[in-house]
Design a protein around this nucleic acid. Structure first.
Lengths: 208, 208
DNA sequence: AATTCCGGAGAACAGTTGTTAACTGCATGG
DNA sequence: CCATGCAGTTAACAACTGTTCTCCGGAATT
């Protein structure tokens, strides 16, 4: 049973997605707390009242955007800390992965960076929750690494949080450099690499 | 010549400060891009048009708030990386200093965290500029430390940036925990301490 | 084939916004 | 002491906002 949904539900999902896409685009030059419901529907070409068929408010739409944006970040974060190979190689791979993700989904990255500390409480909460989930995953991944032998779970979670923060910080810096020169982007990559290198060093000597 | 300014300029500065204060308070539950000019003047108890005597727009007011907010952070950041004494002691002192600063100027911290990646470009730029200045100061401070012997300037600046980011991240976490239990705040302090410990370890082995 | 369901349209509401213009009263400098 | 400057006021503007109620057409169900 492939459960093909009817024409009706397909159309509903389509306009819903159109609303999300339009909102994401409008949010490139403002923050969620100033995003108007009419503004979004106007961009889609639909009546203002249609908005209510999909979301209670723009805050509600924001929460939905969190799912979408962090869903795309999910695989990235996992791969970043995936084990295997030379540590130096792993770092280079991680930085490159972040850069390519920012290039592919710039508006997702911008949205998360902007609304993580933004003016809409439910959205902040949703982001905090998802990032905590990510940190937990990273912790589990780190626990599998032989380098983590003898570590306390608390310390592993601390390190995981540091990685997640570092990842978002780097992504945000790449985003700022997106409209700049290639040289700027190279410098961001270089600095991020050295930061990760230093963290790796601290990790190696943690149990001294 | 103490250059006592006239009654008139004093009054002007007073209402200007009242506008800044009211804006900062309003910004605790929204972001700058949704802050209305009338909203601010209403809170102060002054006519909407009076706003223009002090600021061109709310974005302009935002830039002024950056000066004020980061001005208060200035001494904190310097003291955080000030040399002297046991490294472990220095870390504890730094974390405590951040906590007390958040307790004293919560709205300043909130504003910077919120608008650093917020929807108003001139404000983002102003924050970026000031934070770069801070990083430069921290770099200079680190350069005076005997532990930094043999370090490249690039690497010192990288480390300084890491410290600044870490400081802001910690401050933001303290802010979230401000309305929570004392136990929450203790955990934030504990995690921040461990993060700084790990960074210190990486720093110590950087030249291996 | 008849009926129900429902995504979206349309119109109207009271309230808000930024910005302009012309004003008033008072501290300031000649 | 008088003329100027200027912070703040008042009134009005067109444009915009979120939300409600009523309606329509066509897919979904029976």
């Amino acid at each position: 049973m492939s459960h093909t949904l009817g024409v009706r539900q397909v159309q509903k999902r389509r306009t819903r997605q159109a609303l999300l896409d339009a909102a994401l685009e409008l949010l490139e030059e403002q923050s969620l707390s100033s995003l108007g419901l009419r503004e979004v529907t106007r961009a889609v070409g639909v009546a203002p009242t249609a908005f209510y068929r999909h979301f209670r408010s723009t805050a509600d739409l924001g929460v939905a955007l969190v799912e979408e944006a962090l869903g795309s970040l999910h695989p990235m974060i996992r791969t970043t800390v995936s084990p295997g190979g030379d540590p130096e190689e792993r770092i280079a791979r991680a930085v490159e992965l972040i850069a390519s993700h920012v290039g592919e989904y710039p508006s997702h990255v911008r949205f998360i960076a902007r609304e993580r500390h933004g003016g809409v409480q439910p959205v902040r909460e949703a982001i905090r929750e998802q990032l905590a989930r990510f940190a937990e995953e990273v912790r589990a991944e780190l626990a599998g690494d032989p380098e983590s032998a003898g570590w306390h779970d608390d310390d592993l979670l601390m390190l995981a949080g540091l990685y997640v923060d570092q990842m978002l910080s780097t992504a945000s810096q790449f985003l700022e450099a997106l409209e700049g020169t290639a040289e700027e982007r190279r410098r961001v990559a270089e600095t991020a690499t050295r930061r990760l290198r230093l963290i790796t060093l601290g990790r190696r000597h943690w149990l001294d």
